[in-house]
Design a protein around this nucleic acid. Structure first.
Lengths: 185, 185
DNA sequence: TGCAAATAACTGACTGGGCAGTTATTTATT
DNA sequence: AATAAATAACTGCCCAGTCAGTTATTTGCA
C-alpha cells in the first residue's frame, strides 16, 4: 500500500514492495499471481471493510437517518485528514483505464456499497418526513461530492485544507446541505 | 492527449505519441524537453483556457450571480458527458505524487482560477442579498463537488450516469443547493 | 533568375537502464 | 528423508532519451 500510494502503480517496484514486507521479490509471487493481482487483493483487503463500516453505521441509524448521515460525514471528514485514505481511490482513478477490472471491483465492492447505504438513509429520512422528497440519488451526490472534492483538493493539489478543521467543515457542509443557500421564508 | 488519456502517463509511449502526431519520436524532442515537459505543455495549452472561460462567464455575470452559476454548472454538466474533459484531471491525480510540479501548475492555473471565480460569484450573490451569508468557500465546494463526483463516477468507475441527462442533473443539483434538504417553513 | 551555402526540421538506429516474472537452488519444517 | 517455504540470480523485454546523418527550406550572392 505504502509503495503503491507513494509512487503510483507503474512506478512502484515489486522488489521494493517485497523488501518492505520483509521478504524477497520471488516470495511475493508465491502469494500473488502478478502485480495487478497484488493491487486487486490490496484493495479488497484494505478498503472493502471501510465501505462495510459505512453500511453498518447506516443500518444502525435507520431510526435517526439525519444523525447517521452526520456521523458518517464526520467520520469521513476526520479520515480525510490522512492522505493515506485517499491513496486507494487515487490508484483506482489512475489505473482504471488500463485495468478496467480494478475499477469494476472497486465500484461493486466499495463505491456502490457506500453509495447505496447513503441512498437508503436518505430514502428513510424522506419516508419519515425528516426531509422533503428530493431525488435520493442527487441528495447522495450532494452529500458525498463536496467531501470527495475536499479530499482531492487538499491531498492531490495540495491546496489549503478547509479552515477550522473537520468539525467546521462538516458544520458548513450540513448547513448548506440541509438549509440551502437561499434565504429561509 | 489521446495517448495519455487512453493509457495513462507511464504507459503512453513517446513513439506512439509521435506517430500519432505524424512525426518521429526524435522529432518530439525538438519541441519538448521530456515526457514530463510534454504533459506540462499539454495541460497549459488544453486546459487553462477552460478555466479562463469560467472566469469570463463569472465576470460577465456579476449582476446576476445566480444566473451565472447556473450557466457555468450547465456548461460543466454538458462537458462532463464527454470523457475527454476529465482526462486531464485524471492524469493530474495519477501523476501528482511523482511530479508535484504538475499538480502545482494545475492548481495555480486551472483549479484556483475556476474556484476563485466561483467564490467571487457567491460573495457577490451574498452582497446583493440573493442568498444568505454562508461561507463562500464551503458554498463553492458544495457547488463543484457533486459535479466533480458525477464525472468521476460516470467515467472512471463506469457507473450509471445521472438519469435524465445534464439538464435534469443541474435541476436536481440547484434544487438541493439553493433550497436544501429540509422542509421549508 | 539561378545556384550555392547555410540553417532548420526531421529521422533511423542505437544505448543504457530498469524491471516483471521465472528458474535453479538453498533453507526450514514435519 | 520428504516436503514446503523462500530466495538469489537470471532472462527477456520495453522504452526514454540521444546522436550522427539526411532532407527541406531559407538566405546570400552573382
Amino acid at each position: 500500500m505504502a509503495e503503491f500510494s507513494e509512487k503510483g502503480f507503474e512506478a512502484a517496484r515489486m522488489e521494493d514492495i517485497a523488501r518492505r514486507a520483509g521478504i524477497s521479490k520471488a516470495g511475493v509471487y508465491l502469494y500473488f499471481r502478478s502485480k495487478e493481482g497484488l493491487l486487486t487483493a490490496l484493495i479488497k483487503a484494505k478498503v472493502a471493510p471501510l465501505a462495510q463500516q459505512v453500511r453498518a453505521m447506516a443500518a444502525a441509524g435507520a431510526t435517526d437517518p439525519l444523525g447517521a448521515l452526520r456521523r458518517i460525514a464526520s467520520m469521513a471528514a476526520h479520515q480525510l485528514q490522512d492522505a493515506k485514505v485517499l491513496a486507494v481511490p487515487r490508484l483506482v482513478i489512475a489505473v482504471s483505464g488500463r485495468f478496467p477490472r480494478i475499477a469494476e471491483d472497486y465500484r461493486r465492492e466499495v463505491a456502490e456499497v457506500a453509495r447505496g447505504a447513503l441512498i437508503e438513509l436518505i430514502e428513510a429520512a424522506i419516508e419519515q418526513g425528516r426531509i422533503r422528497a428530493v431525488d435520493p440519488v442527487a441528495a447522495a451526490r450532494a452529500f458525498i461530492g463536496p467531501l470527495f472534492f475536499e479530499g482531492m483538493w487538499t491531498h492531490v493539489l495540495r491546496g489549503e485544507s478547509a479552515e477550522g478543521g473537520p468539525g467546521r467543515l462538516i458544520d458548513s457542509h450540513f448547513d448548506i446541505l440541509l438549509n440551502g443557500l437561499e434565504h429561509r421564508a
